[in-house]
């Protein structure tokens, strides 16, 4: 997509297909994030117009939900579970390792744009703690060594 296009046509297509659904805003935001990886600021007035909402309302919804992001993610997004079950299996050591390995904190993206790091409050894998997810793939009982292996697999898939 050429600059300075922020995905206007993709956004329009998503809005067009969903705007008549009851409670359409969340499905539209999911659709946009699925297509573009984030919700560009330019899409806010377009969504507001289509749903007869104020821009403030749309902005309020985007920022209320942890999952929606307003900046492009890295090539891969690493979600580390911060919840109690994972804590009981020493997830905090794993998180410290992950942060130092990637050289970033939560909500940041590596300089090379390869990885974004996000916390998540429970992946429902509490019987396999500590758990992480990368691009929707799940990994359980992750040690620091295993984390490094997984990163390598993700970087250069077999």
């Amino acid at each position: 997509m050429s600059q300075p296009d922020w995905g206007k046509s993709a956004v329009a297509a998503v809005i067009d297909s969903l705007k008549d659904e009851p409670g359409a805003l969340l499905p539209i935001l999911h659709g946009i994030q699925d297509a573009l990886g984030y919700i560009p600021s330019g899409s806010v007035p377009v969504i507001a117009e289509a749903l007869n909402l104020s821009r403030a309302e749309v902005h309020g919804v985007i920022t209320f939900y942890h999952y929606f992001r307003e900046t492009p993610p890295g090539k891969h997004t690493v979600h580390l579970c911060r919840a109690e079950s994972c804590q009981s299996m020493n997830s905090e050591a794993l998180h410290a390792h992950a942060k130092s390995k990637l050289g970033i904190d939560f909500h940041q993206t590596t300089q090379d744009g390869d990885f974004s790091l996000e916390p998540v409050y429970c992946l429902g894998l509490c019987s396999c703690s500590p758990a992480i997810a990368i691009d929707g793939e799940v990994y359980g009982r992750v040690s620091s060594e295993r984390f490094d292996e997984i990163l390598n697999e993700v970087r250069s898939p077999a």
Binding site: G23, L26, L51, F64, Y65, H66, Y67, F68, V120, Y121
Partner: peptide, 19 residues
Amino acid sequence: GAGAYVCGEETALLESLEG
């Protein structure tokens, strides 16, 4: 949903479903 724990509360969930 979109990663908000409070949406497990039933009325917050309904608000969320309404967009």
